[in-house]
Amino acid sequence: MNAAHPTALAVACSPLADQQTVGLLAAELGLPFIGVVKPKKVTDYALLLYADENGLALQTTGPGAPGPVRAEFCAGKAGYRLEHGGGTGQLIAKAVGMQKTRKTLHILDATAGLGQDAFVLAGLGCRMTLIERSPIVHALLADGLARGRLNVTAAPVIEQMTLLAQDSARWLAQGEGSVADVVYLDPMFPHRKKDALVKKEMRVFRDIVGDDLDAPDLLAAALARATYRVVVKRPRKAPQIEGPEPATRLEGKSSRYDIYPIKAFPSS
């Protein structure tokens, strides 16, 4: 995700958070720390990076604002998947090629975001490396992973996930040779129409990180460093990333996976 610098963001906390720790995070991110506040009463900032008893979150301010957005692996959709399991028949598992090999796949999620897709793949047995270049989103994801490690069910899955703070396109372009069996991309593209149904997370993310305008460079770098394939997740009707034509596509109800094979997977 793009590391665009927010213009209306501050760091704050509830009375139950450790103010010193939160203040240090604000200093690290170069953001103002406004101390203990109630988000609905804040008027000077549109968004808060807010710490409370449930962890770190992005919170829209003002009365009637939607609830917080946080990296969550023990509750919500991620928690439901964890409790009820999921097999290699899932579309994302097919997209990365899990049905084609018995090999434990190492997958580089180069646009990690809040880590939901990486968590699904880790839960299916893949070894995941996550890269997130937005310092704010990285902080949210690191917090979510830390909380997840305290959960007896989530912890073994999260042990399969390694988080890096890097710009993926630059990081991939600077080296040579394979970095992973599969490189997985889910870039943020320009949103061309106003849609009230756009997910809360996506609206907040756009306010923070902007669009991934370097997606063609990221795809090219990924193709140069993946061993077996590159997989790009896109909204179902969205255009493909500028560059080579994907060899195949897998479509779901709202999203699809563009698949760029490099060579065949080993059978074992």
Rank of each mutant, 00 (worst) to 15 (best):
M1I: 12
M1K: 06
N2K: 11
L9K: 02
L9H: 06
A12K: 03
S14E: 07
A17R: 05
T21H: 13
V22F: 04
L29M: 12
V42H: 02
D44Q: 13
L48E: 06
A51P: 09
A51Q: 12
R70Y: 11
A75I: 11
G87P: 06
G89C: 14
Q90A: 10
A93V: 03
K94I: 06
R102H: 03
K103C: 00
L105Y: 00
I107Y: 00
D109R: 01
Q116T: 11
A122L: 04
G123Y: 00
C126E: 03
C126F: 01
M128V: 07
L130E: 04
P135S: 10
L140N: 01
A142G: 12
R147E: 09
A155K: 11
I158M: 08
E159G: 10
Q166I: 09
R170D: 14
W171T: 08
L172D: 02
G177Y: 07
V182P: 00
V183E: 03
V183Y: 03
H191Y: 14
H191R: 15
V198E: 04
V204R: 05
D207W: 11
V209K: 05
L213G: 12
P216K: 05
L218E: 04
L219P: 04
A221L: 02
L223A: 06
Y228A: 00
P235W: 08
E245Q: 12
P246H: 07
R249Y: 13
I259M: 10
P261D: 04
I262N: 03
S267V: 00
S267E: 00
